[in-house]
């Protein structure tokens, strides 16, 4: 007999909530840095979902494939984040701007 709510389901629901937060942040926040953090939150949500999936079949060992994907995903996400930060910093240095709003 399993518990009414499995821990992996809690993870999955959390992932959904985080994803919505990240999406909202990406659209609603003005500051470059906040937007970049929002993409990080989006990434975290997806990785969390993957991790939770690894345990979905109630087998003894976790499914290794999602883990492999998460590791790859993190590498990609880190480099993307670094690139975004570098761009934002460059824009700040060149123009002193930190949001898209004053771009017009």
């Amino acid at each position: 007999m399993t518990a009414p709510v499995e821990s992996y389901q809690i993870y999955a629901v959390t992932a959904g909530i985080l994803f919505s937060m990240g999406l909202a942040g990406l659209f609603l926040c003005g500051h470059f840095f906040k937007k970049i953090i929002a993409t990080k939150i989006l990434g975290t949500a997806v990785f969390l979902l993957f991790i939770s999936l690894a345990k979905r079949d109630f087998v003894e060992f976790a499914d290794p494939v999602p883990h492999a994907m998460v590791i790859t995903g993190i590498v990609v996400a880190v480099s993307a984040g670094a690139f975004a930060l570098a761009l934002a910093r460059r824009i700040w240095n060149e123009t002193g701007r930190s949001t898209f709003e004053d771009s017009q």
Binding site: A80, A84, E94, R97, F100
Partner: peptide, 12 residues
């Protein structure tokens, strides 16, 4: 640069 950052965030 500004257009590029917007592009990057949309792509991400």
């Amino acid at each position: 640069l500004v257009a590029g950052l917007r592009y990057l965030l949309a792509a991400l």
